[in-house]
Design a protein around this nucleic acid. Structure first.
Lengths: 230, 230
DNA sequence: CGATAAGTGGAGAGCCTCATCCACTTGATC
DNA sequence: GATCAAGTGGATGAGGCTCTCCACTTATCG
């Protein structure tokens, strides 16, 4: 078993350096400015030509996938850690806080997490693992009586989307805002003040995280021709 | 005083019809698909050429401004209504609910509300009126003791941004989700369970609603040249 | 060191956007 | 109904994006 991730296995030394630099730079730029940052900008900052970029990552989506792969892994670990906590409610809270902090720290995170990634099988799996882990966490937290009984599984999707709306120029501000929002929401999730809630919202975590479209939202192809024309 | 809004005053009959149709169609499309919808699509669906569109609205921003003008007005009325309510806390809640519902019903709403609108003076005023009205509402609601004392003025910005993150394919889903999110948050805003909160978040309503950039987020012009090049 | 395959950069194709131009059509007026 | 300014639509710039092509450079290995 090679310690190198197989994709960089047979690469020439300089090529590998370049590849690493590209991923590093892409991570920075996606975090700072979101997934909209042009490939040319990434190439420039990595001091390579666009051709080099496209040689390693045939499509922008593949680059995004690569860049966010370990972020997804980190998410899964967060949920695993939470499941290991003897106090399920505390585990629930810290898991939510950690994931939301990650989301707030990285502008591209939400978009990448929400994207379809039709070709990234492993990401798909990670995602499902995280979702199932969180379902279990929810079940246990409810069992302790600390999490309100009418908390819906899909309220987690609600939380992710809401937290994804907290995007500001500076990462610091975004994180502070996210912290406060999450504090408010966790307080609302506690069983103590279980005021009746409106209908559980027909959201579905799988649906939210697996929209029918592709990564950079190319918009439904039919949308180009809106009208039968004059 | 003409009943016509002055912009359509001296227009020929057919031109006025076209203008009205454009605004109507633009409202629909912005609501359905957000501000990103191309001008050509609007023109096509309104059965006019792009030239006609640009004759009436020299820039896309001006069209957006026109389309959302009465939405802004509606917001102001909501706040005014809330201020008229003898029960400030109830006023606070209904105001929040109504505005968030409007936001969820219209995909373009958040973007338009958040946009800079450097040329739309009246919108600027409406916005400030709404903000001040809401500040007063907050003050009164706190005075009754129902709204938690550590609720920050800027938490309203938090709420708007979070609710803005609730965007789905169908408007119905978005509204249901928004309803539930708002219910959670309002429950957290109640004074009863005033758990200590993290720092008040350095958000500012004015800043959030008046970012330094323009409408359709043209991105900082310097961002094109990221690096001094090789 | 010299051969060679692997790696490279920049030009540019193709598509999309906002916005403009101008030859043609049409509603309002006498 | 004739006149003509007001109104119109489609072609077209200008500029952004993703992604491709190909002549040139360079690391690696005998």
């Amino acid at each position: 078993m090679p310690t190198v991730p197989a994709a960089v296995a047979g690469l020439r030394a300089d090529a590998r350096q370049n590849r690493d630099r590209i991923v590093e730079v892409a991570r920075e730029l996606f975090a700072e400015r979101g997934l909209d940052v042009p490939m040319a900008a990434i190439a420039r900052r990595a001091h390579v030509g666009v051709a080099t970029l496209y040689r390693r990552f045939p499509t922008k989506e593949s680059l995004v996938t690569e860049v966010f792969a370990d972020q997804f892994e980190a998410c899964v670990s967060v949920v695993d850690d939470a499941l290991a906590d003897p106090d399920p409610w505390r585990g629930f809270c810290t898991a939510v806080e950690k994931v939301c902090t990650m989301q707030a720290a990285d502008r591209g995170f939400s978009a990448a997490f929400t994207a379809a990634f039709p070709d990234a099988v492993d990401i798909e799996q990670e995602r499902n693992r995280a979702i199932q882990g969180f379902a279990e966490l929810t079940r246990r937290a409810k069992a302790t009586g600390r999490l309100r009984a009418d908390f819906a599984q899909d309220d987690f999707a609600l939380l992710l989307m809401a937290n994804g709306g907290i995007i500001t120029e500076s990462t610091e501000t975004a994180q502070a805002a996210s912290r406060r929002l999450v504090a408010y929401l966790l307080s609302a999730f506690r069983a103590e003040q279980a005021e009746p809630l409106p209908p559980p919202a027909p959201l579905n975590l799988h649906d939210v995280l697996n929209p029918p479209t592709s990564t950079t939202r190319p918009a439904p192809p039919a949308s180009t021709r809106l009208e039968p024309a004059t």
